[in-house]
Design a binder for these strands. Structure first.
Lengths: 233, 233
DNA sequence: TCTACTGTTTGATCTGAATCAAGGAAGATC
DNA sequence: GATCTTCCTTGATTCAGATCAAACAGTAGA
């Protein structure tokens, strides 16, 4: 790592917990790496070798059954942390959904560093707690929501998380954005098939709730209505 | 708290990270409390006032939609930690499934103590990471598994988690145990209706995979077969 | 411009689990 | 020991979403 102080996610990644001198030490443990769309960094069931901060790009966290069924259990944005620290095996895969830049650490050296830097572990704990909240919210979706509710929830979630991406903390819900997922991946996040995803989107478009300028773009025309359809708590 | 050194979960709860003198300080912040079956300690959406260690008993963590649909997003056993530290609101409810004994802390005093005791935060981080792994495993179940696979997975999970309960670390998979959940609650964990749960159990019994001596008891007759049916990764 | 390809939409049909509807069993209460 | 009450099981029917099957729209190459 050349110079963490110039890093675009310097203030929002967990590294924000560190003082400049500590950051420099951590920086020497890491290396910046580009990964291209579709590349898998971590394989489900393999030894947990690496962890990383996401500098740019979007990745998916997924688990699967031996017959090929796959569930996406997390979507990772810039400034987020990936990998399974403090554990021998990774129970899930991590794959780039777009070209991405990462700041990679060997798990063992990261673990050792973190144990000696409580402020960093504290940030990591906070993030893990937030990730757990999100996972549980999604369990409610997967266990109890209808197809329409699932799609509406996903679109709202994307409009929020894509809006807070980057280095600033400003929160602006986007009303037009490019989905980082194709239809199949949307299905794999929502526990639905590609056909059901497509039909539900077509219906929301026909009802004037959203617009679909092209395959990846979504515009939210009536956010209030989308919120009602999402069956938020 | 009278005397943490005598606590039955002393060595398996997160308190195990503390030295005797630190433990005494934490002990003075907590109080032991009994809660009875059905009682809710934390309400979804309310301020996160308390956190606790479970000394005995079993509790559920649940989230719901305004129209009453409920998803159980976690089942909590002795020595586990409950509540949402480091957050203003609790996104989920916590309710006792059996009579239980807890060691309760005000969230603010626990948060402050934890921030000054990195070893405790480290334990909490490890537990939160494990809880996240479990939540994601369950997302796979809710998103992709069939009713039979879900029931088989639940029974195996229960046989393991009930077997490791208590103060020792010994891991023995139980082949006969009392379910801490009624049929409705099994449905709420699995994203199924009570009727489907009942039918699936009847079928497993008819096939000789399990026995059902009474409403709550389950005996596993053919664990291998149950494992095959569970569609484990 | 034609062809191939990849991702998406739309239609027809099927099916696993939900819903609706009785019954039955095991405690609890009187 | 009769009567509730609660929880569970079983059967009949329905339905949301899966599956099967084409067709369509961009995009990339040749």
């Amino acid at each position: 790592m050349k110079d963490c102080s110039q890093c675009v996610v310097r203030n929002s990644a967990i590294c924000a917990a560190l003082m400049p001198d500590e950051l420099e030490v951590l920086g020497r443990l890491g290396r910046k790496q580009r990964v291209s769309k579709g590349q898998t960094l971590v394989w489900e069931g393999d030894d947990s070798i690496i962890v990383a901060n996401v500098i740019s790009g979007i990745l998916k966290v997924s688990m699967s059954i031996s017959d090929g069924r796959e569930q996406i259990v997390g979507v990772v944005f810039p400034a987020d942390f990936i990998g399974r620290p403090f554990g021998r095996k990774s129970p899930y895969s991590v794959t780039a959904l777009s070209d991405a830049e990462l700041c990679i650490f060997s798990r063992s050296s990261f673990d050792a560093f973190a144990r000696n830097h409580p402020a960093l572990e504290h940030k990591l704990l906070q993030r893990t707690l937030e990730e757990l909240d999100r996972a549980r919210e999604w369990m409610l979706l997967l266990g109890k929501k209808t197809a329409t509710e699932r799609i509406a929830t996903l679109l709202l979630e994307m409009s929020i998380r894509l809006g807070e991406t980057g280095c600033s903390v400003e929160q602006n819900e986007l009303n037009e954005f490019a989905l980082p997922l194709d239809r199949q991946q949307m299905g794999d996040v929502l526990g639905l098939t590609i056909e059901t995803v497509s039909r539900q989107l077509s219906r929301l478009k026909a009802d004037g709730v959203i617009g679909l300028p092209d395959r990846r773009m979504v515009s939210i025309q009536d956010r209030r209505r989308l919120q009602d359809l999402s069956a938020a708590a």
